[in-house]
C-alpha cells in the first residue's frame, strides 16, 4: 500500500534518513556568530548550507567587521534539536572560508540586539497613544508627518516583537528589521 503512506518529517520509524529520534527531540534556539573570509560567494555558501541541508534560519545579519583582515561576521539565529545544532556548527566549521563559529547561546552570557524601523499611520488619540508607547519603549521618532511616524527601536528581538504588537492596532503599516547582532559578555 504505497499510496497510503504519509510520512511525517522527522519520524524516524519510517525513514532511514531521519535520524533524530534516537536523540533528544527538544527544539532549541541558538545564536551563532560565524566569522568568515570576506570574499564573493561566502555568504551564498553559508546560506546554501542551511537551505541544502534543511536547517532553519530565523534571522541572519552580515557585515564586514575587519577591513584589513578581510573578515565578516555573520550572526545567525537558528532552531533545531541539540544534535541538529551540533551538526550545523560542524557543517559551518568545515566550510573553507569559515574562520570560526561561536555558539553564543551555550558559551556563556551574551548580548543580543536588533534594530527596527516601524511606520505607524494615524491621527488623533491613536497618534498620541503611539507616541506615548514609543516613549516607554525608548523608541525614537526619526521621521514624522501630520499623519505618520517612523520609529527607530533597538533591543532584543522579543522587545521589538512586543513593540510591534502594540503598534499594530495603532496603525502599523510597515516594519524593517535588521536581524540580530550578538556578542559574548565580558572580556575576551
Amino acid at each position: 500500500m504505497m499510496s497510503a503512506l504519509h510520512i511525517k518529517r522527522g519520524s524516524n520509524s519510517h525513514s532511514a534518513y531521519n535520524l533524530r529520534s534516537t536523540f533528544s527531540d527538544v527544539q532549541e534556539k541558538h545564536t551563532l556568530a560565524v566569522v568568515v573570509e570576506n570574499e564573493p560567494g561566502t555568504l551564498a555558501r553559508v546560506i546554501g548550507l542551511f537551505s541544502g541541508r534543511g536547517y532553519n534560519i530565523e534571522s541572519l545579519t552580515v557585515a564586514e567587521v575587519d577591513h584589513t583582515g578581510h573578515q565578516s561576521r555573520i550572526t545567525v539565529v537558528t532552531t533545531g534539536t541539540p544534535q541538529i545544532i551540533e551538526q550545523i556548527k560542524a557543517q559551518l566549521e568545515r566550510l573553507v572560508p569559515v574562520h570560526r563559529v561561536n555558539d553564543l547561546t551555550v558559551e556563556g552570557p551574551s548580548v543580543e540586539r536588533e534594530l527596527a524601523l516601524l511606520k505607524v499611520e494615524g491621527t488623533g488619540d491613536q497618534r498620541v497613544e503611539a507616541l506615548r508607547l514609543a516613549d516607554i519603549f525608548r523608541a525614537k521618532v526619526v521621521d514624522s508627518t501630520l499623519a505618520s511616524f517612523v520609529f527607530e527601536i533597538t533591543g532584543t528581538p522579543e522587545k521589538i516583537d512586543a513593540f510591534a504588537d502594540l503598534m499594530r492596532p495603532l496603525g502599523l503599516v510597515e516594519v524593517a528589521r535588521t536581524g540580530v547582532a550578538a556578542l559574548a559578555r565580558g572580556a575576551e
Binding site: 524516524n12 529520534s21 551538526q87
Partner: peptide, 23 residues
Amino acid sequence: RIDAFSPNSVKAHIDIDPSSINK
C-alpha cells in the same frame, strides 16, 4: 534501521571531518 543499528556496542569513530561524527 537506525534505532536497531548495533544496539549493544560501544562505538568509536575515527574521522577527519568533525561533521561526520554524530551525524
